[in-house]
Amino acid sequence: MRKLIADLFVSLDGFASGADEKAYFGYDGPDLSSWIQREISQPQVILMGRNTYVILAGYSATATDSASVRMRELPKLVFSNSLDEPLTWSNTKVIAGNLEQQIRLLKQQTGDPIRIFGSLQLVKGLMQLGLVDRLRLLVFPLILGDAGLEPIYAGFQRTALHLAETQTLDSRLILLEYEPENDITRD
């Protein structure tokens, strides 16, 4: 059975972005760059929602940096009931219909892990359905306050998580890896 891993970049106060914020909230560094390269180099199928597809395809489809080149090579799935194939970004297919049914079928197939980068509404829906196996939060040392946009946890239901792993990047970013409590066997 395939694992579904959701990666979210988040400010300390829970926002995915902020007004006039730079990429990575302005906290790019060698450890973060290495982590991104290592993660993108792994075998995987990328799953995203329509909005994330539009943003990433607009940039990564023609960019020449190594992460964008790798993204073009990887198989990508867009969950959308409004997009039609063919899509302009190479190796990208649309899946539509009932979210729970489609993702359960996808997870039951053999193959590489499924990864989600961003796609807040998709992650929220999959968390509520109990389909996320690992939630990875890369926490940036920044409080956005009133400038915060895209609150990560807005609309989530109560969800108990088990801390599975932590890592510090560039002596300032904290990667928190969680598994839903209902997937953890306790003694």
Rank of each mutant, 00 (worst) to 15 (best):
Q109M: 15
G118C: 14
L131V: 03
L135P: 05
R134E: 15
I114W: 02
P113F: 07
G111Q: 11
L120D: 03
D112P: 07
Q102H: 07
D133H: 05
K107L: 11
V139R: 12
I114F: 02
L99E: 00
G125Q: 13
L120I: 12
T110A: 08
S119D: 12
P141V: 15
Q121F: 10
K124N: 05
P141A: 14
F140W: 13
Q101M: 00
G125T: 12
V132C: 10
M127N: 06
L135H: 09
Q108P: 00
I103A: 00
L105Q: 13
Q121W: 04
V139G: 08
L131W: 12
I114C: 00
F140A: 12
L126P: 04
S119A: 15
K124R: 15
Q121M: 08
E100Q: 10
L99C: 01
D133V: 07
V132N: 04
R115Y: 09
R136F: 02
K124Y: 07
I103R: 02
L122P: 02
I103Q: 04
L131I: 02
V132E: 01
V139S: 13
I114H: 00
D133N: 11
G118A: 14
L122T: 00
G125D: 12
D112S: 14
Q128C: 08
L137V: 13
Q101K: 06
L135W: 06
L131S: 03
L129V: 00
L135V: 12
D112C: 06
L126M: 09
L126Y: 08
Q101H: 06
D112T: 10
M127Q: 07
Q101S: 06
L135Q: 05
L120M: 06
L126G: 03
L126Q: 08
I114L: 11
P113L: 11
Q102N: 09
L137H: 09
L138Y: 09
G125H: 10
T110C: 01
L135F: 14
G118W: 11
L99Y: 03
Q109N: 07
G125V: 11
L138H: 04
G130M: 14
L106Q: 10
S119V: 12
K107H: 06
L137T: 11
V139T: 15
V123S: 02
T110V: 02
G125A: 09
I114P: 02
L122I: 01
D112L: 08
M127A: 15
L126V: 09
Q109C: 05
Q109I: 04
Q102S: 15
Q108A: 12
P141Y: 15
L126H: 06
Q102M: 13
V132F: 04
K107R: 14
R134C: 05
Q108E: 11
Q102G: 09
V123Q: 00
L126F: 10
T110P: 00
L135I: 11
L120S: 11
I114V: 15
G111I: 10
I116R: 10
